[in-house]
Design a protein around this nucleic acid. Structure first.
Lengths: 233, 233
DNA sequence: TTCATTTTTTGACATAAGTCAATGCCGCCC
DNA sequence: GGGCGGCATTGACTTATGTCAAAAAATGAA
């Protein structure tokens, strides 16, 4: 498991921990491989541990009765997921499924709780992670209720351009259907809005690569969140 | 501060802690009084501590550029708020304002971090709380994106009837405008839906008191979340 | 390559919910 | 008691977005 030393020591959950703690964590961890579109856990399952993703993408999502899905998060390498029920003592509140071939490290509940009891600094890190997640949800709720789809899309694109540290061409990394679900809409609507925004000269779409042509316009759209505002341009 | 012993020991954040820990917390706490509609903190402020509400109601909300507000939570006595940035080390992600005359206990960041470092069990408790809150957000996001307003309203009413431990008449406790914001809609829409549901024989509205006439119908509505389904009744 | 499956796009249409504006209601303060 | 201001309701209208269906494009396997 030595090969994961760097990844673990850099994940937000365990960043800043001394080497001997990381070593302990490595002893606890179990490697798990998943195929594309494989279910990792379901809403309602008992949470007997959490995961840190190593490679590939994992989506966390909810399903409505009719089968429509709302993606809550998409996690890439280095990101922890499934940590909620470890502390709430309840079941997973959502489903997790791979988007691509995937490898994750699994940390059993008991071992982690033990470790935390002995090392309060780990607890502070975890408190920070959960707080950040809470903050993300806060933003997501705000977006879903305050902004219309074009606003959410613009906000997402700008976020990606910051994350990927690029000012021009960004990479969605996920399919447009999945992006639609993440934004709380459907592929048809997303498709229409993408072409409308392209027509407006805001972006240029080439498959999963999107060139941001008018960052200012996108920012205005992300802030006001009103489609009406881009009509006027 | 002795008079707050019971409140603190019963708040979800510190529930289950031994008495001597509660005592320590009481020493850290500072009393803060607020008038009606007074701002407690703003989005972007540094989080130098968190609060536990003692009396009155506090709303946590976001503002769009046009000034439209989305209420994220409403907290009553015994409920903690503002704890997110204490651990993430960042700023408050939303605003807090009182709805009524209000008193809260304030716990400074430094003291709390000290206490946690010395007593890991406190940290485990807090982790559980944040996890529960995350779980709630999960549900809220699901509701916003997967259900239409009548479904969200039905879910909210049923939740209240469980919280208030009543099967027939429940009390909203907040104005209908605020309820609208909490559900991610506007007063007009809420008003229309309330009278539609009353016409359907699902509920009976008398000001802020609402009588649940058809719990089964409400449950169906809350699950499917489709207005279409109550039209057919 | 070719074929089959999935993803994306486009069109016509339906509808939930927002906007604007007017009116009604109710408590509250002078 | 009377008027004032916030809250709630109602109506007419607009619009963003969902639904359904079909075509087009992209992807991947044989």
């Amino acid at each position: 498991m030595k090969k994961y030393f760097k990844l673990i020591s850099e994940t937000i959950l365990f960043s800043g921990l001394p080497d001997h703690h990381i070593e302990k964590l490595l002893k606890i961890a179990r490697e798990k491989d998943f195929n594309k579109n494989e279910l990792i856990f379901s809403e309602g399952d008992n949470g007997d541990g959490f995961y840190i993703n190593v490679e590939g993408l994992v989506k966390i999502f909810k399903l409505s009765l009719e089968g429509k899905e709302q993606i809550l998060h998409i996690f890439g390498p280095g990101e922890p997921y499934g940590e909620v029920p470890v502390f709430s003592g309840k079941t997973f509140p959502a489903n997790a499924e791979t988007i691509s071939k995937c490898r994750s490290l699994f940390f059993p509940r008991k071992s982690i709780v033990n470790l935390i009891t002995q090392n309060p600094s780990i607890a502070l890190n975890m408190l920070a992670v959960l707080s950040l997640r809470l903050r993300q949800f806060t933003v997501q709720v705000e977006n879903l209720s305050l902004k219309e789809v074009p606003g959410r899309l613009a906000a997402y694109l700008l976020m990606l351009s910051i994350e990927q540290d690029k000012i021009d061409t960004i990479n969605l990394n996920i399919s447009k259907s999945q992006l639609a679900s993440l934004l709380g809409t459907i592929p048809e609507t997303l498709s229409r809005i993408l072409s409308k925004m392209a027509g407006q000269g805001l972006i240029d779409v080439q498959g999963r690569k999107i060139k941001l042509l008018d960052t200012e316009g996108l920012e205005m759209l992300a802030q006001t969140g009103r489609i009406a505002d881009i009509e006027k341009l």
